[in-house]
Design a protein around this nucleic acid. Structure first.
Lengths: 226, 226, 226, 226
DNA sequence: GATGAATGAGCATTCATTCAT
DNA sequence: GATGAATGAATGCTCATTCAT
């Protein structure tokens, strides 16, 4: 029992050791340029050892996402479990969670967003794929819960909270990717990610508050604008 | 002169021929799986010929982005040049332009968003890179102009129109990527991209209209929530 | 036309160039130890070039067999087309054809026999597989024709000529493999392959001549020996 | 002494345990595809343990051949020790022994035939190699003894019994390999191995019986047919 | 300009074998 | 003796790119 436990802990440590090394190498060389040998070297292990813990390069890459998604989910659950009494406080907590999520590991977050629409997705093992999917879904659900709570007059009841959560998530990823791209494109070292996110979320919040929304959309539809 | 002109025209025709073929191949096989030989075959040319018109695979790929960015810029300029008298109409035209932009070539658009943050960026020739950059900037500027026009009372004067345009662009890319990822992840064939975009843009519009925005943000700052 | 012809001839020359190199390398290093790089080096080509002419290593290996099977088929057809008037002469010609077949390229012949029952078989392209199969079948058919001609009283009419041909072929491959194995096992340089084959074939010939065969077999069956 | 004995017995049991597992794995996956880990798993041992009993994979593989060769030798000795009074009975017993030999483990038998002419041979330890060699030789000697006994008028005295035994063995291996290859090539599930062998052996028997043989061969030699 | 045969660097992955425990 | 985690050498194959024709 004690032995088994120790082995499990050591195994987990190895995984982390590899993930840490992979993160460093992927960050500095990029997904394609980084070789398994690079990663093995960085982890001070042999290439073969990596394959004891990760099925292949893509799965190793995708596995990086798991950790940060787990982190996000925990943070979002906290937002909902804490006694954030006012809508204002809950939203501020949500905003902070997202900013922290970004800061937890920007590079991996970018990877996750890129992974979403990449061909790599199709080659991942079903288990890993569904784990990523599940964590994403759960996080979006937690966000949806926050928007559901707003329904006490603040948010138009006609919004589907899941749709709101998805749009919120989209806004988040869009802002992160855009700011990151400014960094790459312009060579800007410092970006205003945090303030950009805060302001974007503020706009979003005000956008979903308004009671006249339905009318407006209906009007548009009736007037036939498309 | 006449000869030179003809040659230029023929050269441009070849470029387009290749780009069209590349688009088809990239769309069906994905960026990495598509080989230069595939593209050459599709264009009914030899691999070597492609290198007479494009420096390398990355540049060919990036050139595809140029086309759709050019398309977007034209559409956005139209929005501003047309006599869209009311704020409502302008925004509807903007929305339609963005939806059309997506539909013009979804696959290439996704690639563009991924390109933004990829390593590939670093290997592109400065000319191509700056052209992409310029087109993106101009498009965002055109969007900014639209928001500037709103300033007659509808939009709080304290917003920086460029920031609004960037956030709008971010929202657009985020929604596109998210919906696209739902397609891949869930295998959903039909997605609600158009309606999602329209609703997201509606929320955004309402969000930037509100006069109380500044107050709200200031309060948050003063109360020290971070 | 002239150009196309020349290219075809050059292509065929390349294939031969590679096959010759492969034969040398396979002979000296064996199937598994021989690397594609070895073969490329021997052929004074780059590894990539080999893949322009052969799908993969296994197909290159299996392709070696084609040439000798073609040779055998031609020889066997000659045996049947020549005016070998007596049974004796035909059989002598058949024997000589088989001996020459062995001497044409012993190493590749061994490879063919090993290929027959190897797992490699399953990974070959259907085209190559069926070509090998077709050539083998045709050769066996030609042998069957020889045995059919014997039917004028010399060979018991109750034998199925195809079965006889298959058994003859089996005897041939068995003797070749056994003599070859003696060479490897015992380090004997000189083996008596030719004389062994001739004697084995002589025994076979006498064995199928006898008119009492049927009786003998029937008796065995009746007595219930099994 | 008692302790040492027990240890030896236990050691031998382990060896058998591994051999049995290896046979299963080799049979189902084929020689090359089967990994030492597969075999270890099947034997419910760890990979390292196998190396306590077998020097390496090739030796483990070759050891399998020993088992079936031992089986064959025992069977052949029985044929000679039993009171098979007539030539007919002895030959029937020999035939049965060979068929049983095939059925004892077809896959390993095929491997043995392929091993004969493979590069692997050169990497085996001298001890193992000579043991295989010795068993093969002894089996062929036993067969030779059977043919020697026929010499009482049935078989021409001019045949070298060892040569006959080798040819008989060649015929056996040739038929087995050919029938096996038909199975692989044509995907035929059922083959007529047993009946093919019986008929082939019958032909062989008749072929060596004939009194005119010598004359025939001599004539051929004299007439200079080659 | 066009060709397309040739290039050859580059890399993920496997698996027999070892050895510290 | 037994373990099994770790090793790391070894290699088939791809494909962007070049260049002689």
């Amino acid at each position: 029992m004690g032995i088994q436990e120790r082995k499990e802990r050591e195994g987990e440590r190895r995984r982390q050791q590899i993930i840490v090394a992979a993160r460093r190498v992927f960050s500095s060389k990029g997904l394609n340029k980084a070789t398994m040998e690079d990663i093995a070297g960085e982890a001070e292990l042999s290439p073969g050892t990596i394959y004891l813990y990760f099925k292949n390069k893509d799965e190793l890459y995708a596995s990086l996402s798991l950790r940060i998604l787990q982190y996000l989910l925990i943070r979002l659950k906290h937002v909902n479990s804490e006694k954030n009494e006012t809508s204002e406080k809950r939203y501020a907590a949500l905003t902070k969670a997202m900013v922290d999520f970004y800061e937890f590991d920007p590079m991996i977050l970018i990877s996750l967003f890129n992974l979403q629409t990449s061909e790599t997705l199709k080659t991942l093992s079903p288990e890993l794929l569904s784990e990523i999917q599940m964590l994403s879904s759960k996080s979006i659900e937690e966000i949806a819960i926050i928007f559901k709570q707003e329904n006490n007059g603040e948010v138009s009841t006609e919004y589907n909270p899941s749709f709101l959560a998805e749009t919120f998530w989209s806004l988040f990823s869009g802002v992160v990717l855009f700011q990151e791209s400014k960094k790459s494109f312009l060579g800007e070292e410092k970006t205003y990610l945090k303030i950009s996110l805060e302001m974007a979320f503020q706009i979003f919040k005000l956008g979903i508050k308004d009671a006249q929304f339905n009318t407006t959309v209906k009007e548009r539809r009736i007037t036939g604008i498309n």
